[in-house]
Every structure is written in C-alpha cells, then in structure tokens.
Design a protein around this nucleic acid. Structure first.
Lengths: 114, 114
DNA sequence: TTGACATGCAACCTTACGGTTGCGTATTGT
DNA sequence: ACAATACGCAACCGTAAGGTTGCATGTCAA
C-alpha cells in the first residue's frame, strides 16, 4: 500500500499511468517517447510502478510491454473513504449555512474554494 | 494537486492525517508525541500538509493548532475515478468468466458481492 | 518577574530520488 | 551474417526529503 501512494506521488508516473490506461500496453520506448526523458529514466519510473503492482510487465520478443493494473488503486479509494465522509460533512454544513440565509460577508469562516 | 499527492506519499503524514481526523485539532507537541520523532520533524511534516491544503493551522496562545481539511482529497478521488471504472471492468470480466461455468471442479461458485 | 512550556529558526547530516551517460546484450529484419 | 532495434546494467550527479541538534523567541501561570 505504501508503495502505491509512493508511486502516485510523482507527476510523471501519474502521466504514464494515464497513457497506459488510454493507449493500451506500451513498450519502454513508447513510454519514454512523449516524455522528455531518456529511456533509462522511463525504465526507472516503470520499475517503481511495477513494484507497486500498478503495472504488469511481460516480454514480447525484444520489447518489454507494460500494462496497467488498476486494482491496487482500490486500496487508495478505501483509505480515502473515511475522509470523503469528512468533507461531505463539511459541505453539508456549508450548504445548510447558505440555505439558512446567512446573507452577507463579514464571516471569518474560510470555506470557499472547490 | 501535485502537492496533495506528494503529501500523501509519506506514511507518517498519512498517520498524522488519521489522527487529526479522529482526535480533532492537535498542537505540534500532541502530534509529535506518539510518533517517535522530534517536534521539529513533526513540524516539517505538518508544514507539508498545510502547504498541500490538507491541514489548516491557527494560533491559540502559545500553541499552534492543526485541523484537518479533507476537501483537497476530492481531487484525488476525481483522479481515481477513471481508474475505478477500469478495475471494475476487470472484476466484471472475471465475474462473467466465473458465471459462464468454466467449471474447474464441481462446486457452486457463489459470488455476487460488491 | 520569572521560570516552565510550546514553538520557531537555522544549520547540518544522511540517504533516496529523479535523471543522465556509457556500454553491453538480446532480438529482429533483410 | 550483420546492422539496426529495444532493452539491461552500473556508475555517476545534483538536489531535495526526512530527520536531527542547538539556541532564540513568545506565552502563560504563579
């Protein structure tokens, strides 16, 4: 689980996951191409993803194909769940607040942005 | 958004978030206590969390109280959504496979859970 | 006022991360 | 066979992350 969160921490890695999700299985070169990076750089990122279980790898001749496996992300969703309850509560409070015609500025509750 | 994923990458930070969610607003010392870490260490983690918007901070006399703000996690859930569709598809395929009586040994396969 | 409490600030240390370069190896098409 | 393709391995580099120590500062209670 730790390794999943760790894998997701890097923007490049999330981008790779997106590409794997949208454009099927990709080789190292195909992953490295669009990114402005060496193949070796891409390989390292892919290794991290494989280690986390988010990417499965299989050989196809001289190519090393990488396929998305989204299942470990279920763990992230599970971890998220209790927090979701939390922010729902907040939004609910805000909604009630607005509904009850609080009418105006001059409040120090900083619940905006979303 | 990047900063949120980054904040979640560290296990200690996720643990702090859990404690803030369950045990209300906490001071630096209260956060640092249970963790085997210096106050300074805890402060750094808290700073990261504040920077990501997951924690709000307010002064109370000489204490610095930290409160959870789960809203930024909505971004994580949103990022997760298309992947969830993906792993659901996988589980669905598996379910159909089992349903269509691939019949390894002779037992009645009882799934149909969520 | 004065001391204990809670924190801030800054420097420092070690290690891991993201990324590169250079070279060696397997695989393929012709 | 042979050259191009796709990759693996290992060393290296700069920087930031996680954590510490030491000391200064603000704040409260008596």
């Amino acid at each position: 689980m730790d390794s999943v969160f760790d894998a997701l921490a890097d923007p490049t890695r999330r981008l790779i996951l997106d590409r794997l999700r949208l454009h099927g299985p990709l080789s190292v070169g195909e992953v490295a191409g669009p990114l402005e990076m060496t193949r070796q750089g891409a390989t390292k990122h892919l290794d991290v993803l494989v280690e986390s279980g988010l990417v499965r790898v299989r050989r196809e001749g001289r190519r090393r194909m990488h396929e998305l496996d989204a299942l470990p992300l279920a763990g992230v969703r599970d971890w998220l769940a209790p927090y979701e309850a939390e922010w729902d509560r907040r939004l609910e409070r805000l909604r009630r607040h607005v509904d009850s015609g609080f009418a105006g500025d001059a409040d120090q509750t900083n619940e905006e942005e979303e």
